[in-house]
């Protein structure tokens, strides 16, 4: 059987995350890394997840992959439903990822095959003692019943797709012989090698310099078209979001504070935190615009304020904000926000 591509129907729900609670049990106490987050990822679309370090965006991704350092960090509540895309006109049944054993063959069959992930640190993401090719072939042969030659051909093909020059030769190179950008491309190649329906990219270009960053992002977008896959893009860089995302999710201290289409987030941010983020971006060409940093700092996870977690830093905070946590509302269609201003 040759490696074959899936057909994806754009717009259908692929992954649904409902009321996800992921907590870390540390010596100093419990850290609610993800605290009741709900969202969906649609087929063929890119969901951008933004927020400062420690806001729980990476932990959300790890929860979907079931790669949390259990039992120290684990999903305590909520549901992650994966809807495998239609294949050969056969509808496959949905899976609740949270109900699976993380070591089970079913979960392993989802990891890498249906949901692939790339990480922030290209320098350390590849195993130094195996060639890049071996590592990609390993992934292909793990999920598909193909012989080594077929897998190798596929590896070369996918390396070529991620713009690695001379892939026939470079496939037998070790990671340390490649630059950071090339390693990240190789990582993307590995992730794409099995035609995943969802690619989770956790700060994929943060460690790279700007020109390479732009090229890799463009390449990712092209490949998304070609493969028809969804991308969950985690970043703190709003520029990357603006270029890549269809839908944006803003997180603050484990909670989703705002979710909307990318245009609405940039032009009509509702939550004061999102507004603050927008004001703190330097925009070339806008001379009169002053950069306004958000005052204060992220609260300690062991010492969270009552009410809205953003209230201590919020310029528009009211008494109510300090007493009660705001519920999520939908002031305009498809635009969700958790703030008392819109209640």
């Amino acid at each position: 059987m040759a490696v074959e591509q899936k057909e994806l129907a754009v717009g259908q729900e692929l992954v649904r995350i409902e009321d996800l609670h992921t907590q870390f049990f540390t010596e100093q106490g419990i850290v609610k890394a993800v605290d009741g987050v709900t969202f969906s990822i649609e087929q063929g679309k890119t969901l951008g997840v933004v927020g400062e370090s420690g806001c729980g965006k990476s932990i959300t991704a790890m929860s979907i992959m079931r790669l949390l350092p259990e039992p120290r960090g684990r999903i305590v509540k909520g549901k992650i439903t994966f809807f495998p895309p239609q294949q050969n006109n056969i509808n496959q049944t949905s899976v609740d990822i949270t109900a699976l054993d993380r070591h089970s063959s079913q979960m392993r069959g989802i990891r890498g095959r249906h949901i692939a992930m790339i990480f922030q640190e290209p320098m350390t993401s590849l195993n130094p003692v195996y060639t890049v090719g071996d590592q990609i072939i390993e992934a292909i042969q793990l999920h598909q019943q193909v012989d080594r030659d077929t897998a190798r051909a596929r590896a070369i093909e996918v390396l070529e797709q991620v713009d690695i020059p001379d892939p026939e030769r470079r496939i037998s190179e070790y990671p340390h012989q490649m630059s950071g950008g090339q390693r990240q491309r190789a990582m993307i190649a590995m992730a794409l090698s099995c035609y995943p329906s969802l690619l989770i990219a956790d700060e994929p270009t943060t460690a790279l310099d700007v020109t390479i960053q732009a090229k890799i992002l463009r390449n990712m977008r092209d490949l998304q078209q070609e493969y028809g896959m969804s991308i969950m893009l985690i970043t703190h860089d709003l520029g990357v979001i603006g270029r890549m995302a269809d839908e944006v999710l803003v997180m603050y201290v484990g909670k989703k504070v705002e979710q909307a289409e990318v245009r609405n987030i940039f032009h009509n941010p509702l939550h004061p935190y999102t507004q603050g983020l927008m004001k703190s971006i330097p925009l070339i060409g806008l001379k009169d615009k002053k950069l306004v940093p958000i005052t204060g700092s992220v609260p300690s996870p062991f010492n969270l304020p009552t009410g809205c977690y953003f209230a201590p830093r919020c310029p528009q905070a009211m008494d109510r904000c300090r007493r009660e946590a705001p519920p999520e509302t939908e002031p305009e269609p498809g635009h969700f926000v958790s703030c008392w201003l819109y209640k």
């Binding site: 400062e52 700007v210 703190h236």
Partner: peptide
């Protein structure tokens, strides 16, 4: 043409901040 936009907050925040 690329515009780099970074979230800048005045203080650095560690992954899990230490308690008081």
């Amino acid at each position: 043409t690329d515009i780099t936009m970074q979230i800048e907050t005045p203080t650095e925040t560690p992954e899990i901040p230490v308690d008081q």
